[in-house]
Structures are given as C-alpha cells and as structure tokens.
Amino acid sequence: MTDIAIVSYAQAPMVRDAGCANEVELIMPVINEALQACGLARTDIDFVCSGSADYLQGAPFAFVAGVDALGAFPPIKESHVEMDAAWALYECYLKMLAGDIDSALIYGFGKSSPGNLPEVLSLQLDPYYLQPLCPDSVSLAALQARAMLDAGRCTREQMNEVVINSRRQAQKNPRAQLRKPVSQEQLQAEVDWIAPLKKSDCCPISDGASALVICRESQAREMGLPYARVVGMDHRIESHMLGFRDLTDSPSARNAAKSAGLHNNIEAAELHAPFSHQEILLRQSLGLSENVDINPSGGALAGNVMMAAGLDRIGSMAAAILRGDYKFGLAHATSGPCLQQNLVTILEAA
C-alpha cells in the first residue's frame, strides 16, 4: 500500500490518422486537460516523465520535440523512457516511494500512421537472427493464437466473445476508435487475415496521446480531489526468444501482479491485450474470476496508441474507480512481441 494518488487522466480521441498534427500538437491538449482537471499548475508538478518511441514516426528524438509542449522554462525535472508510458509512471512511482518527489505528470504519445506499424515493430527483434527475417508483429501474435487454440486454452468462440465485449464496452467510451457493435455471427463469417487471427482479433492502429497526474494522498485530500490509490506496481520481462517461452502462459504478468498486491476482491481489470486471444491468456495467467469485468474502456481492441496504450489501461481503470464503478481494480500494460514484458498496477478507491 502506498500513499500515491492518481488524481487526473486525460486521453486524446484515438484515431487511425491524426493528420498533420505533430508531437507538440498531440501532447499539449492532453497535458492541459489533465492539469486543469485536477487544478494543479505546471509549476506545482515536481517531475515530468514521458514514454514514446522514435521508430513509430521514423525520426529521432520525438521526446525532445515533446518538451516544447511543457513550458519547460525555468527548467524542469524531466525524464523519458523509450517504452510505453506505463513504465514512465513506474519511474515516477519509485521516485515517490523514495521521497524524491511529491507529484508527477506522466504522458505518452504515439503516431503510428506515418509508417507500416507491423513492419516497424519487427525492428524490436534480435537484430542478428530474427530482425533480418522481418517477421511482423501480427504474424508473431498469430503464432501465439495458434498455440492457444491447439493447447485448448481458448476457442474461436471465446476469442469472438472478447471482440464483442470490447466493442460493447467501447460504446460508452467517446475516445475509443472502434465502437461499432459486432455479433458472434458476423465474426464467424469474417475471413481469416493472418490465420488464425481475423482482422477483428487485432487492435486497430491508432494515433493519440494521454496524460496522467499523480500526487500524495494528503495533497489530494487537502485539495478536495477525488483520487484512486495506487496499491502497488511491478513489472517483469520474459525471454526474447519465443521458442524459449510457453506462449500460452504469462508467468511475468502473474509474478508482477502478485508483487503489485493482486487480491481476490478485484472487480475489474484493464488488460493491455492487442489481440483477442491475449485477453484470454492474461485472464487465465492472472487467475481472474468470471466475475471480474474486463476492459470497461473497451481495451486495446477498441484503440491502441503505441507507447500510451499501457498508460491508458491504468488511466482508464483509475477513471472508472473515480466514477464509483469499482472499489478495487487491476491495470496491465505490455511491451514486446507476444506479451514479452508485462506491468501490473493494483488500484483502489480512496
């Protein structure tokens, strides 16, 4: 249990193509929205940390341009991870525990529309043995889906149910990209894309940005701000070599969740599952019961902004708790091919 409070979360509408908006234009509105929502000024924030990846847009130093959105003069305490911004939040979480800072602004942004994302993500692979083969991210996920189906860990119908649930939940989320309801019949009739995955099993490619503000519980109470308490956070990675892993299980997510304080009263989980079978896999690996609501925001299948989608899971769960929908929630973020790296945050109502 910590005294860290999530007091604000803002997300830009997730869209397939943000047009000509640059980093600054993507980031600035969500930062302003997140700060305004909690009434903190930029100068009240002790530390800023962001997550982004240069290869999405194909230009180095995306985060340097991002600093132009912060009003960073006089100079600010600021850092950046070339990862999903969920890990930027983790960096802030540690600094809060260390007593270095008492508040932080975290933001993530991704503009994948300029490139071919599945191909770009093949650059994440071992540069000597795998990358030259250019296996794209959807094909690798399809290998995992095949392993799940063959091992009897999920059925085609269950994968369809994941998609149906995502679209149903997303109808309540004005920021979601895919909100059109689908039926079991429609999905059964859909042709394979990269078998066994159909297009509906895969998250859309999204442009967007989001921002989140944390501070001490004492400050939130003093300011009369509603907040969600961070019970704990942890993250783990698995082998990069897919052949070394059991692709139907996620021990890294399970261990991270345990260490973050997973308990039996969790009512809802935001799972960062860019592919339908991964939601089932995560649910099983985390041992979440049938009663746990999954992805009340619609999840990654309704919109997946690279380098922000993990932070979005945490922000969405915090927002649901602030709305009074749940008392105890779990949020998960992932990175790398086939859920290689996983971060879990346990949240609760104040």
């Binding site: 990846a53 290869y55 985060f63 850092s79 950046h80 991870v81 070339e82 990862m83 890990w87 983790y90 960096e91 770009v120 993500l121 650059l123 994440q124 692979l125 071992d126 540069p127 990358q131 942890d234 993250h235 783990r236 990675i237 698995e238 082998s239 990069h240 070599m241 070394f244 021990p251 890294s252 261990n255 990175s335 790398g336 091919p337 290689q340 790296q341």
Partner: peptide, 24 residues
Amino acid sequence: HMMPELYLADALCATNKPILRVHT
C-alpha cells in the same frame, strides 16, 4: 534496433525481473 531492452533481457539475465530503458 527498436526498444533493445526486449532483446537484451536474456543477455542481462533479466528474465522474470523488471527491466527499464531510459532515453534522454
């Protein structure tokens, strides 16, 4: 090479541990 912590996890015996990549 994009987000090399993913590939380097094995060489750094980081499996089942936290690994974080900074870029400033």
